[in-house]
Every structure is written in C-alpha cells, then in structure tokens.
C-alpha cells in the first residue's frame, strides 16, 4: 500500500513526461522541412496591394451603403466616389500583371447580371 502511494505518482509523472516529449518531438520526425511558404519579400508588395484593394473595395461598398441610408449626402457621395473608384481600380490594375497574363482576370467570377441585381 505504502509502496503504491510512493511509486504511483512517480509512474504517473514519468508517463506524463514521456507523452509530452513524444508530442513535442513528433513534428521533428514526421513533418518535412519545407522552406517557409514565402519567399517573403517578393510577396510583401503583392500582399500590400491585395490588402489595399480590399480596403478600397470595402470603402466603396460602405460609401454606397452610407449614401443609401442618407448618412452621406449626395454631394459628399459624388465628391468621394470618384477618387475611391480610381484608387480601387488602380489596385486592381497593379495586381493584374502579377497574375498569369494569359488568364483574363475575373473571368471565373460572378456574372455581371447578378451583380446588377444585387448592388
């Protein structure tokens, strides 16, 4: 009985330690050492453009909705929509050449007809 009281915690501790170590070591054995997915710096610029595009698109959407709710007056809307569209278009264009040139961008995305209905 006494022996069990002393030995049991030791065994338990050892078991926990071994399990933890196996788990910690497993990636070293099992996974392959791929290079990090990025050749980072080349992608940084592209990432920035993508983020910039999403920001510009979201801003446009928001402007349109705010205009519709009346938060943005007609005049403010007219003043802002041009530059915002221009900026969004600019990011789209900038993203273009990096994609495969033979594939026209956007060709596989939503059909314009649907777009008209929704927005």
């Amino acid at each position: 009985m006494m022996v069990a009281l002393i030995v049991l915690p030791v065994i338990l501790t050892a078991a926990v330690t071994i399990a933890a170590m196996l788990y910690v070591a497993s990636p070293l054995v099992r996974e392959s050492e791929l290079p990090r997915a990025s050749s980072a710096d080349g992608l940084a610029r592209r990432l920035e453009l993508v983020e910039e595009r999403d920001r510009a698109l979201a801003a446009l959407k928001e402007l349109e909705f705010d205009h519709r709710t009346g938060k943005v007056s007609d005049r403010d809307y007219r003043e802002q929509v041009g530059p915002l569209r221009r900026r969004a278009a600019e990011t789209l264009r900038a993203l273009e050449p990096a994609a495969k040139p033979d594939r026209p961008a956007g060709s596989r995305r939503a059909t314009p007809s649907r777009a008209k209905v929704r927005s």
Binding site: S26, P27, E31
Partner: peptide, 19 residues
C-alpha cells in the same frame, strides 16, 4: 526559419497546457 522546430515549439506550448 525552421518550420519543424517551430511546430515542435507550438506542440510544447500545447502540452504545457495539458500538464
């Protein structure tokens, strides 16, 4: 830039939680 070692560090953190 060692991915495997990083993965192992993540696992160490996770097992620290279990412990």
């Amino acid at each position: 830039g060692r991915r495997r070692l990083l993965s192992s560090a993540v696992n160490a953190f996770v097992s620290a939680f279990a412990c």
